[in-house]
Computed example of a mutant assay.
Amino acid sequence: MIGIPQQVVQDVASPDSLALSPTASDAGIATADSLLNGKPDPEMVGQLIATGQFSEFGHRVKTLMTDAAAGLVPEIIGAILVFLLLYITYRFVGALLDRLLKRGKRVDQGVQSLLKKTYRIFAFVLIAVMVLAQFGVNITALLAGLSIAGVAIGFAAKDTLENFISGVTILLDKPFAIGDVIEVDGTYGVVEDLTLRSTRVRTVKRQIMVLPNIHMVNQKVINYTMMGAVRVDIDFGVAYKEYPEEARKVVLPLTEGDERLHSAFPPTVVVTSLNDSSVDMQLRVFLEDARLENQIRVEYTEKIRAALRQADIEIPFPHLQLFVDGAKALESSTLFLPPGDPER
């Protein structure tokens, strides 16, 4: 039997000789202990994955997520309570504001709409800020960041801001209001709505025309409602052989008993011009409701034509008269012989 030196046996059996390298097992164990003790170190996380200790890694991630969720529960509850309290306050103040605006007869509908929308935006921003504050968000830094972002957005949304400012200008200057009959760019219609960005006009064809507020400020706008009465001109003409006074006596009785006409302004019939083929005349009536303008014009144009025909007053139309004098080249022509002439 070959004897083995005792020193060798001691070296082999020594615990120190059986230990792994510090760069392997010790490093892995240290990494696991670090994670399990709540000290996540990116370098140790990498060593943990490199040494194959995936179960410890998964356990630690699960623990961290559970702890984070448990820590957020009070914040979530506080945020929900703050949201409910502020939302109830928002609804109560909104209902009170709506009631006050309805009682205020001097407040224009467009101004009411602007105030309601401004209050709604302000309330939602305030609620969002207060809820974020429950999660430890730095409100001062957030507002500073929003200010910088607002400047950048302002340059990017230049047209939108112009329309917003124009909308406020319209509401304050009041060139027209909701329900007014206006004409802009040759389009006639009723103002249906006025928002912060655009004005909506319902045309006579029952089409909604959406116009940017900057367009309404820069263009000529005719308001037919502001003065309380609008004049409607109905054009017609009579032949030169007729007398305008006779036409006036025929046309004016057509307006009698029409309650749609303004009682303070009696209808009139005037001569407006002497045209090439006719004496141009005009029936002028005033309306309290400007929305009836087109209806009145169409209706009375038809009535005037029927009345003039019944009174045997000629309604002219464009025509030419040709006079031939001294045209020797046509003396031998049969073109101008009367019908039935045997030489024709």
Rank of each mutant, 00 (worst) to 15 (best):
V238K: 07
T272N: 09
P244S: 15
V217L: 13
I315R: 12
F286C: 06
V269L: 07
R291P: 00
L335V: 06
V298Q: 09
V271Y: 02
L330G: 06
Q295E: 13
V269R: 00
E256C: 03
L283F: 01
S198Q: 14
D312Q: 15
H262T: 12
D233H: 14
A239N: 07
M227K: 14
S332Y: 04
L196Q: 11
V230Y: 02
H319R: 15
Q282Y: 00
I234F: 00
N213H: 12
Q219N: 14
G326E: 06
R309S: 06
L322T: 12
N213K: 12
A311C: 10
I304K: 07
E314S: 11
G228M: 08
A311F: 03
R231F: 03
N294M: 12
E259L: 08
I315T: 15
D276H: 05
R284Y: 01
S198G: 00
M216S: 07
A306P: 05
T255W: 00
V221H: 00
T225C: 07
A229N: 04
N223P: 02
T301R: 11
M216C: 13
V324M: 09
L211N: 09
P244Y: 06
R202S: 06
G340L: 10
I315W: 02
V201F: 01
R202L: 12
D312G: 04
T199D: 05
I315P: 03
A229C: 04
T272Q: 08
A290V: 04
Y243S: 12
